[in-house]
């Protein structure tokens, strides 16, 4: 039943469009797309560097974290919690002192926005599919996927605070 209805709707809509009346909307769609392409600019990248070394402090990534302002002062309690969570759930692939399965988080805050970092932790599948930098990183690291460890926003925020202490 459902199938019929859907098929019918699609076909019906298609035919209806031929009967006229839909052209204006088409235009709207086109101009909207145009807008989106123009908004993405101002990324200063040195394309000769591997993605993990590139600096991009404008890209906020894709995910639940839209905007995040960091306090100048580092919250040491949060750092301790973040270090603990990182040790439990991240060290299988990320080591502070070296490149391992994935990149080391040392110095990450000089290369990425806090939003990007948290979105990469919280939403890695979509990030590695859609975010240009995350996609490039996936390739740089031989296709090793960034695992979604189902962290809470609070835990990932604590990890971010911990990363601020890693230079």
């Amino acid at each position: 039943m459902k199938t019929t209805l859907k098929l019918m709707t699609i076909l019906f809509a298609a035919i209806l469009m031929n009967c006229g009346g839909k052209e204006e909307k088409k235009k709207e769609g086109f101009s909207y797309e145009k807008k989106e392409t123009t908004t993405k600019t101002e990324v200063k990248k040195d394309e000769s560097l591997p993605p993990s070394k590139q600096i991009d402090l404008s890209n906020k990534g894709i995910g639940p974290i839209k905007s995040l302002k960091l306090d100048d002062k580092i919250d040491q309690e949060m750092v301790a919690h973040g270090a603990e969570v990182f040790k439990k759930l991240c060290t299988a692939c990320h080591r502070v002192d070296k490149k391992f399965i994935g990149p080391s988080p040392a110095g990450i805050m000089e290369r990425r926005t806090p939003e990007w970092v948290m979105n990469m932790i919280l939403n890695p599948v979509e990030m590695t599919q859609k975010d240009p930098l995350a996609k490039a990183l996936l390739i740089e690291f031989n296709g090793a996927p960034m695992a979604n460890q189902n962290l809470s926003e609070e835990d990932s925020r604590a990890i971010l605070e911990y990363f601020r202490t890693l230079k």
Binding site: M8, L11, F12, I15, L16, N18, C19
Partner: peptide, 8 residues
């Protein structure tokens, strides 16, 4: 076919 004939 049916839809084509009756689409409008």
């Amino acid at each position: 076919v049916l839809v084509a004939f009756t689409s409008c």
